[in-house]
């Protein structure tokens, strides 16, 4: 019975494969968990990559569903580029198991986690969910510091060269060009961001520690009492008091977060709210450096 069954499946599978002729292997299929990695991969891989971003900048990457469409994309991926540090722990492991794709499993060249290549901030001493949605490896939002893109890009180009050795020189050249441009950009952003040094901020979610370190911002408090926990009225009252004592100049809300807590705090304190997009708007063709430009411009031109 079993062998007959297996034969039947094989026939069905074979006939289906005939209906969908193999997709041209001219390019590598890249499955990026977040749009910033899609944008970075595109900087280095250019037209040799077909890039799919599993999330948009309007989605909270902690809370994604392992949808059929994502399984279908992961099934065909040659390279997975994600943040790691447990950011995608609620959906990526399941996606990897469901995708029936051996090339993108942990340990393979097709499995790339950006957080493996940067120094993590806020690594907890004690991991306990009473502290909210904490990550044992540290705060996962590493992309908010533009400097982190250099070590990640350096590691990514190695993976691309391994997976597609034919185009190794192409990737090397693009990486070198990217590094030169990026170093100049970093200098330019450093100059532009000087007025932001030592500016006190309140954030909605603890999304920005890497940006804060990069631009010299000081995060006085968060509207969420614990990471991922809905702001309560008693916590907001405490934040309000804190804001008055410490001379905060702006409230930062990440684009996908509910706007009510930040607006309430603004109405109570008179502080402006600056909404910063969580990532590159890759789906509309925004480039990586344009997003960092937006972050700095929004902060500099914040309503006073």
């Amino acid at each position: 019975m079993l062998s007959r069954l297996a034969a039947r499946i094989a026939v069905i599978a074979a006939s289906i494969t005939c209906f969908f002729p193999a997709v041209s292997q001219a390019t590598l299929n890249v499955f990026a968990c977040e749009p910033e990695w899609a944008a970075l991969a595109s900087e280095i891989g250019g037209d040799r990559l077909t890039i799919y971003s599993a999330t948009t900048s309007m989605q909270d990457p902690h809370h994604i569903q392992a949808r059929p469409s994502l399984i279908a994309k992961a099934r065909r991926a040659d390279l997975l580029v994600c943040t790691g540090a447990e950011l995608e722990t609620g959906w990526l492991p399941l996606l990897l198991r469901k995708a029936n794709n051996g090339d993108i499993q942990p340990g393979k060249p097709g499995y790339f986690m950006a957080a493996d290549y940067v120094d993590m901030l806020e690594v907890p001493v004690k991991v306990d969910r009473s502290h909210g949605d904490v990550h044992a490896s540290g705060n996962p939002h590493i992309h908010t510091d533009a400097r982190n893109m250099l070590p990640v890009a350096a590691a990514l180009v190695q993976h691309l060269k391994t997976l597609d050795s034919e185009n190794a020189e192409y990737y090397s050249n693009r990486y070198d060009a990217f590094r030169t441009v990026w170093e100049a950009k970093l200098e330019e952003w450093k100059q532009r961001a000087m007025p932001l040094e030592d500016v006190n901020i309140v954030a909605h979610h603890n999304f920005w520690p890497y940006m804060n370190r990069w631009l010299g911002l000081i995060q006085v408090d968060t509207l969420e009492p614990l990471p991922g926990v809905t702001p309560s009225s008693s916590h907001l009252a405490a934040v309000k008091k804190h804001v008055a004592e410490r001379g905060v100049s702006v409230i930062i809300r990440v684009g996908y977060a509910n706007e009510r807590p930040a607006n309430w705090m603004s109405s109570q304190t008179g502080l402006p709210v600056v909404t910063l997009p969580a990532s590159v708007d890759f789906h509309s063709g925004q480039k990586l450096d344009e997003w960092y430009d937006t972050l700095i411009t929004s902060m500099i031109n914040r309503p006073q």
């Binding site: 297996a6 499946i9 069905i12 599978a13 289906i16 494969t17 969908f20 193999a22 997709v23 059929p68 469409s69 399984i71 279908a72 994309k73 099934r75 065909r76 995708a99 029936n100």
Partner: peptide
């Protein structure tokens, strides 16, 4: 035993 087709539609 399961098989997923290499298509955009799952």
């Amino acid at each position: 035993a399961s098989f997923i087709t290499p298509t955009d539609v799952f």
